[in-house]
């Protein structure tokens, strides 16, 4: 009894269970997958790609669906969903930035996507601070502290060693601290 009580009911076991349900019936469990991940995926993309987060979130989930229906059930069952969804979202974000830099951009007089109503008042201030970080540190800080991935999940999602992503997070946080001090 004491043994079972000591077992943590972690987020990981919940997503393992979801992966099992997806492996049995992608169509039946996909909406649950979206519900479970839409907030972290959107929150992260909102910081990494401020003006296109809605479109990118939607596209990331559609790609995840296409991938899932192409996988055999044995493979779906073993997916670690939290880092996996971010490998898709980050890849999409990278292509998006690359495609955009290849196309001429129209001059926009107004923000295409104004910040949502319910966003914290200093949401825009954070956009400025993140923009001042090198991309690798920005990604690492957002995924660790806005999205809430563990360092191990971060390493999987970014395909970099745990030590490297830890270092990126720490340096990014230190830099943000300096930026905020300079603001004051």
């Amino acid at each position: 009894m004491g043994f079972f009580q000591s077992m943590p009911s972690t987020v990981a076991t919940v997503t393992d269970e979801l992966a099992r349900r997806l492996s049995r019936d992608v169509d039946g469990a996909f909406e649950e997958f979206v519900t479970a991940f839409r907030s972290p995926v959107y929150s992260g993309l909102r910081r990494l790609h401020p003006s296109d987060a809605e479109d990118l979130t939607q596209e990331a989930f559609i790609r995840a669906y296409r991938a899932l229906i192409s996988y055999p059930p044995e493979r779906i069952e073993t997916i670690d969903l939290r880092p996996w969804v971010w490998t898709i979202a980050l890849n999409l974000g990278r292509n998006h930035v690359r495609d955009r830099s290849r196309r001429p951009q129209p001059v926009e007089l107004h923000d295409r996507h104004p910040a949502p109503e319910d966003e914290p008042a200093d949401g825009r201030a954070w956009d400025q601070r993140f923009a001042a970080l090198p991309p690798r540190q920005r990604q690492a800080v957002v995924l660790r502290h806005v999205v809430g991935l563990t360092y191990e999940e971060l390493a999987l999602a970014l395909e970099r060693p745990v030590g490297t992503v830890k270092n990126d997070v720490h340096r990014g946080i230190a830099r943000l601290r300096t930026i905020i001090e300079e603001e004051a």
Partner: peptide, 23 residues
């Protein structure tokens, strides 16, 4: 403060996603 930046997407993101998959 960073953890407080977590937010829900607009409802259109969920409906657009499910629509895009054909579900």
């Amino acid at each position: 403060s960073l953890a407080d930046l977590a937010t829900e997407p607009p409802a259109s993101v969920t409906s657009g996603t499910l629509l895009g998959t054909g579900l």
